[in-house]
Design a protein around this nucleic acid. Structure first.
Lengths: 221, 221
DNA sequence: AATTCACTTACGGCTTCCCGTAAAATATGT
DNA sequence: ACATATTTTACGGGAAGCCGTAAGTGAATT
């Protein structure tokens, strides 16, 4: 089983429970950090000391309590940690309910497992640790189903860029210039109009406002 | 100290930790429910058995896992419980970060305390239990500040109704009829336009889409 | 090199929205 | 009851967005 584990999580209660659970699994070297920056520092130090962690368990969202941090979320923490220790196993433990977000973690950050804070998380966590230790990925079955269900429409980076601009208060006729700056391909006002119309068509929406609400709900923007 | 406590929370890990913490405080009769419906049933039964709970600790959001429930969130649970046992003390323990939502709980549901799942929640919880047991309210100081900061603009029910319609895809010229149905006062298209313009003006926004994004972020809609 | 096909752009009309002004209605004070 | 404020409504001109058509561009195929 894993020997040295670092937990990055801003809920103190959860940290206490997590450390206790890890101890029950005979993982003696387990530590926690309440801030992403602290977690990254610990990782760096562990490498310097020649006693690297072999698993990082991290939450996704960290509440901003005023202390300025250079990293403020789990995804960025994972990216940063991978720069120093690319081979470290990563388990995300979060209450993020959006399959799209979780899917992106597996695709883009190559995380090794995801456990949803929920009615079975104590069991799931233990199962995840075993599965990951064996070098496999841990994706809860229940989740995989809903990934398929909800991924009716795929937003491209291009789509997201446009929608973010609109949600930020831009006029449509300001967007072509913005897209050129970003080196994104169809830049004409006409193309933007067409793409927007198509997205709304496919989702069954009539108005931009509806689309913004939808994207906010699904955390696409 | 409290003698019988019921915890309504859908995170199993949190329930385990909570029961353990309560035991450490010499509260022997502590139980948990993973579903709101189960929690309400327990409350009812406890009254029938002549051994009522004297404290309810509840989360706000409960993940829908497919099991159909008549109550699916903490606020509704509190309302329902109060119908059977109006005097029960209620402590909300949640990661809800929006002061507006928390404020509404104190105002409308007369909850006795709020503890934010965060970096100091183990301390806060113990403090809250003591304060509430003495009959006082527990509002974290740090939170009260941000309530003031963020409540720059007060959305009325009227405002929310309009914004919800727009976010739902309604044309502005459909809204007058809707407002008449809802018996809300200024119903003319002109008034709606003016109100929207005023809201955006006060918040420094140019477009509806921006407003929708803002309201979604702050969970106003 | 010519043809085809997919994609992008330009443009015009039509609708919706935005915003100012003024009239009507309602509320308030004397 | 009357006069004065305030709010609500009506309307109109201009701006922004929507949508269809047609022209332009460029890569792939023959």
């Amino acid at each position: 089983m894993f020997e040295r584990v670092l937990v990055a999580e801003d809920q103190q209660s959860m940290n206490f429970w997590m450390l206790q659970t890890l101890k029950e699994l005979n993982i003696k070297d387990a530590y926690y950090a309440c801030y992403c920056d602290d977690a990254l520092t610990r990782i760096k130090n562990s490498l310097k000391d020649g006693a690297p962690f072999d698993l990082l368990i991290t939450d996704l969202s960290f509440v901003d309590d005023g202390r300025t941090q250079s990293i403020n979320n789990g995804a960025d923490l994972i990216k940063a940690v991978r720069q120093y220790q690319p081979a470290i196993k990563v388990l995300v433990f979060s209450s993020e309910p959006n399959p799209r977000v979780v899917n992106a973690l597996f695709d883009k950050l190559a995380i090794d497992g995801y456990v949803h804070k929920g009615r079975t998380d104590t069991i799931d966590l233990k199962a995840a640790l075993e599965v990951i230790y064996k070098g496999k990925k841990f994706v809860p079955e229940a989740f995989r189903v809903s990934i398929r269900q909800k991924n009716a429409f795929k937003f491209s980076n291009y789509d997201v860029a446009i929608i973010e601009q609109i949600a930020g208060g831009a006029n449509q006729n300001e967007i072509p210039d913005y897209l050129k700056q970003q080196n994104m391909k169809p830049t004409s006002l006409s193309s933007i109009e067409k793409r927007l119309a198509q997205i709304k068509e496919e989702l069954g929406f009539k108005k931009n406002e509806q689309l913004i609400a939808y994207c906010k709900d699904l955390k696409i923007i």
